[in-house]
Write a protein that binds this DNA or RNA. Structure first.
Lengths: 102, 102
DNA sequence: CGTATAGTTGGATTGTTGTCAAACCTTCCA
DNA sequence: TGGAAGGTTTGACAACAATCCAACTATACG
């Protein structure tokens, strides 16, 4: 039930978010999270076809940028989009990206 | 009055656009273009404080991604945001990015 | 306790990016 | 015709990024 470290809302940087979203694999993760509400890392990465360590790297980029939140429960980690936080900070951005990608 | 080569609307890729916007210098250029309608490369780059060849490189990235359009007139080049094209292809994206950055 | 499961970390590799400097190309103008 | 002005290209370089593999940690289960 532990929450992994993540930037505070006011520390989320636009260029970092854009960079995080500018990778096809990460964008796919985000689109998946937008429809599925919450997923384990395994669940998110299953369809993408990358090595699990590569995916772990992408999850970290997304988390460090403030795009996703990760909660550990037992040996699984559940990720959610920080949609509310992002909407507060950069109104409309996430929706337009997800709309454009999906 | 020559228009420099640029991708067709349907060839504009979301990840490329995001990548183009994910650099602070390029984002500054875009924000400037959003308020000024049209500017020469010199005019855009003046406030940014980078070498002109570096700026030229950034202009190219923006143009290749489909974010800006460049028109040559005499020895100057005027850049404009491809706002209409981007709005058609990725509705709301540009506005939210500019709003967040500006 | 031993083993499987879920993810992370470190190293290696390969490729991309941001930056500058110097040389270059075009166009204008005196 | 010879500069000057406005950009581009090329080369160099350091920093970063995406990927894989192998080794690791931590939790759960039998």
């Amino acid at each position: 039930m532990r929450l992994l470290p993540q930037p505070a809302i006011e520390d989320i940087q636009l260029t970092e978010v854009l960079h995080a979203l500018a990778d096809p694999a990460r964008l796919e993760v985000v689109v998946k999270l937008a429809t599925e509400v919450e997923l384990t890392c395994r669940g998110v990465g299953e369809a993408i076809g990358l090595h699990k360590s590569t995916l772990s790297h992408h999850y970290r980029v997304l988390r460090d940028a403030g795009v996703v939140s990760t909660r550990q429960e037992g040996r699984q980690k559940f990720m959610t989009l920080r949609k509310g936080d992002l909407d507060d900070r950069f109104p409309g951005l996430l929706d337009s990206v997800i709309g454009a990608a999906g």
